[in-house]
């Protein structure tokens, strides 16, 4: 059920990307999809009753959650902010050219 709720969040972002005609709304849809995928990966690695994967002295035998998805999701989050900056820079350049964010009006070529 938890996995499916993450997927519902992904589908909301997909719907936003497919329906909306404002460039910035499309960017927000991409960001929502990215959040949902990160949440899904962490959810896959979650173990009930386990602690964060940090070894402490004298704690004895404890079970850790899966550290591998966490390491990969940190990478994905940082890449996400970099690509978001690139996307927003492209949107601002498009706005400079066309004076609009409406994707139905950004059709003609202008050098």
């Amino acid at each position: 059920m938890m996995f499916f709720l993450c997927f519902v969040l992904f589908l909301i972002g997909l719907y936003c990307v497919l329906i909306k005609k404002n460039l910035l709304k499309i960017v927000m849809g991409i960001v929502i999809m990215e959040y949902s995928v990160n949440l899904f990966l962490i959810t896959v690695g979650y173990k009930a009753g386990a602690v964060a994967p940090i070894v402490t002295e004298g704690a004895g035998k404890v079970s850790f959650v899966d550290p591998l998805p966490q390491a990969l999701v940190i990478t994905a989050i940082v890449i996400g902010i970099a690509t978001l900056a690139l996307i927003v820079a492209l949107c601002m350049r498009v706005y400079d050219r066309y004076k609009t964010f409406d994707i139905t009006k950004i059709r003609r070529l202008r050098g």
Binding site: V65, Q70, L84, A85, V88
Partner: peptide, 21 residues
Amino acid sequence: MQAPDIAITQIVVEVLALVIL
């Protein structure tokens, strides 16, 4: 979900994304 490193990263990145947007 016992991922404190990612929570910290997410907060920082979220503030940055908010400013950019």
